[in-house]
Simulated assay, not measured.
Amino acid sequence: MNHQEIPPEGNLTEVMEFVLLGFADIPRLQWLLFGLFLIIYIIILMSNGTIFLITKMDPALQSPMYFFLANFSFLEICYVSATLPRMLMNLGTQRRSISLVACATQMCFVLMFGTTECFLLTVMAYDRYVAICNPLNYLLVMNHRVCTQLVTGSWTIGIPVQIGQTYQIFSLPFCGSKEINHFFCDIPPILKLACGDTFVNEMLVYIVVVLFITVPFLLILGSYSKIISIILKLPSATSQAKAFSPCSSHLMVVVLFFGTGITAYLRPNTRSSEGTDKALSLFYTILTPMFNPMIYSLRNKDVITALRKLLCK
């Protein structure tokens, strides 16, 4: 990552606010983008809210898999709400300034919700692993207490780490430019504005990414390698398709979220890559939460049936 040299003490001014440039490089499309992202936000709220509602109300959707899906849908609403409302306000008012405290708060929530999503997707993969590889003991292993503990751990395990990481980043001195070439306060563009050496900060970011993104992703891949080997041993193609159907939906979400997230944080960051960084961030912070309900509902007969019941009522 590029960083600025510390200027002479007389020229050092403390930055109290930043400017989120967002999509300022395409001024003619500001209102079009505002309308587009507003529609996306409404779709995310309604679709994920509907899945959360039907998994809580429908008696047929009271299994551990749908318990995790309900938490995942609620998480997606929280995750997207950490970035999209500020982006919509910036596009609508053209006032792109954000205070240092607000920027730090946004970054902290984005990191916490992102970490929760990584662990929750891992828990959902473990649920599928137990359901397919140990079906006779599934309800015994994935009892209500265990499910609650797994979900609670997913929501809380990253909180102290991400609060500490955010505090460390915003304890750096910022000088000179205060323009963030991004649509939210993300780590790479913030570190580019820091004065002096940010090597330690960058290494800590990579360590957190490996522990909270790469390791869960590898655990998920390990689970699915075992799942697929078990499914291929089933006697008929019909039983194989039925067993893999819920897994395929989850696997699509995993590839979309982890693929863009790992690429965004582990690739070398240069000035020329800022546009690519924004595009990747759009995928894992906004587009993935929009696609998730479609992926899970359109490929799940139980969810479709519950949705029809709700609409009929």
Rank of each mutant, 00 (worst) to 15 (best):
S249A: 15
M57F: 05
L45P: 00
Q149C: 10
L307A: 13
M89I: 11
D277H: 13
S177F: 06
F174T: 13
L287M: 11
P189K: 12
L298K: 07
L111S: 05
Q168S: 14
D58Y: 04
S249D: 06
C103Y: 06
V254M: 14
C108W: 06
G176E: 10
A24W: 02
N292L: 14
V141W: 03
D127Q: 08
W31L: 00
K233P: 01
S223K: 11
N134D: 13
D58E: 08
P160N: 08
Q62H: 14
L204I: 15
K313Q: 10
Q30I: 01
L20F: 10
P216W: 15
A194R: 01
V209R: 05
M57H: 05
P27F: 03
V123T: 14
G196P: 03
L32W: 00
G259F: 08
V80S: 14
F217H: 10
P8E: 09
A104I: 05
S99W: 01
Y265R: 12
L204Q: 14
A131T: 02
A60F: 11
L69K: 06
T55D: 05
I43N: 10
I163D: 04
K226R: 14
I262W: 01
I132F: 02
L84I: 15
A70E: 10
V254K: 08
M107N: 11
Q149G: 09
P7F: 09
I157K: 05
M290E: 09
S97F: 12
V209D: 11
P27T: 02
G49L: 06
V161E: 07
N90W: 03
F170P: 00
I187E: 05
I228D: 00
S236K: 06
I77P: 03
E17L: 03
L36K: 00
Y284V: 03
P293I: 12
L310K: 09
V15M: 08
F74Y: 11
M46L: 15
P135K: 10
T263H: 04
L139A: 07
T115W: 08
T214P: 03
A194E: 07
V215F: 15
V200R: 12
V205Q: 08
M57Q: 09
T260E: 06
V208G: 01
Y66E: 08
V253R: 02
I42Y: 00
E76I: 07
F199I: 13
F109V: 15
F119P: 02
C108N: 07
N11E: 15
P27L: 04
I77M: 12
L232R: 01
L140H: 07
T55R: 07
E5L: 12
T214E: 06
K233I: 01
S239L: 13
N134L: 12
T285L: 11
F74R: 12
G49P: 02
I163N: 03
T116P: 01
S236Y: 03
S281M: 10
I98N: 12
Y265A: 08
C108I: 09
R86T: 11
S239K: 10
D277F: 15
P8K: 09
R86H: 09
F68L: 14
Q30H: 02
Y129P: 01
L211N: 07
S245L: 02
P27M: 04
W31S: 00
V146K: 08
K313W: 09
T270M: 13
I190A: 05
K233C: 06
M46V: 15
A243E: 01
L310S: 11
P7D: 05
N71F: 06
E202H: 08
Y66V: 13
I54D: 07
Q94S: 14
N201I: 13
